[in-house]
């Protein structure tokens, strides 16, 4: 009897778990399906199950829909942004987490204040500053501001990893005659690789999905990144749901591949950022 009860509750729990698997993936998966089925304007039901298969819409979205250009821009924005943020945060994380200097914790607290401020609160002057620098409507306009905006979280995360490295490492490197820069480069950086990977993935995801700043900084079609391009794309082809679905597919597949490969690092990053904080 008890065994029976246990069995039923186990089946029910698994049923709920699987239901939520569908709730989580179906909306996106539906889009992928809609992208590969022939568009029929008389039915216009993107949720209908496909009866035939075509890659025509993916191709059209990529070329005439310019999703190819948008993707290139997204990569061109993400690569330098991620590289510089990682470099700056790694240097600063070393200074805040391992080196000892007067005022260190005070400066760090000042940096942390930035984590509380929403980006919406500074976009007006940010827009005019970038305009004054003559960089409105360029890829740099979507990269440079993040060297500052990403710093609080990035430094916070790097610092918590550097702090956990044993002090003896620095000491023995110093005794061996290595300066601070050499110690950082040859001893510290290799050891913080897990943290750097996590930060890389997060920064990449934020860059890839960024919408507000590109919307503000760029009005020329040739500089649009994927989310922004997708937004205009949707406005342009409102009627053709297969084509829009193709746009969504092109935008979501790369990030979901990255997520599936680095799933572990995502989870570790969230736990590091959340629980240690």
């Amino acid at each position: 009897m008890n065994k029976m009860k246990k069995y039923i509750s186990s089946v029910m729990i698994h049923g709920i778990l699987i239901l939520f698997v569908f709730i989580s993936i179906l909306p996106i998966f539906w889009m992928w399906l809609a992208a590969i089925k022939p568009f029929d304007p008389s039915v216009n039901d993107p949720f209908a199950f496909p009866t035939a298969f075509t890659l025509e819409y993916i191709k059209e979205a990529w070329t005439t829909g310019r999703m190819g250009i948008y993707m290139k821009n997204s990569i061109m924005v993400a690569a330098p942004r991620v590289a510089v943020v990682l470099l700056l945060a790694s240097l600063a994380g070393y200074a805040f987490g391992k080196l000892k200097w007067k005022g260190r914790d005070l400066v760090f607290k000042f940096l942390l204040l930035g984590m509380m401020i929403p980006i919406n609160a500074m976009i007006i002057p940010l827009y005019y500053n970038v305009q004054r620098l003559g960089m409105i409507n360029s890829l740099q306009a979507m990269i440079l501001p993040y060297f500052g905006l990403s710093m609080p979280f990035a430094c916070f995360m790097m610092r918590s990893f550097f702090r956990e490295l044993p002090d003896e490492l620095v000491e023995s490197a110093t005794i061996d005659g290595a300066g601070k820069l050499k110690t950082w480069l040859y001893v510290m950086v290799p050891l913080t690789k897990p943290a750097l990977t996590t930060l890389l993935i997060f920064e990449f995801m934020w860059s890839w999905n960024d919408y507000l700043l590109p919307m503000l900084m760029v009005y020329d079609d040739k500089f649009r990144t994927l989310p922004l391009g997708l937004m205009y794309f949707q406005g342009e082809y409102t009627m053709n749901t297969s084509l829009i679905a193709a746009g969504v597919t092109i935008c979501t597949i790369p990030i979901l591949i990255v997520y599936s490969i680095f799933q572990r690092s995502f989870v570790e990053g969230i736990t590091a950022g959340a629980v240690k904080g």
Partner: peptide
């Protein structure tokens, strides 16, 4: 966790 990594523009369209 998947819905969390997708662009909110895509989420909005879906």
């Amino acid at each position: 966790f998947m819905p969390n990594v997708v662009s909110l523009v895509a989420v909005g369209i879906v």
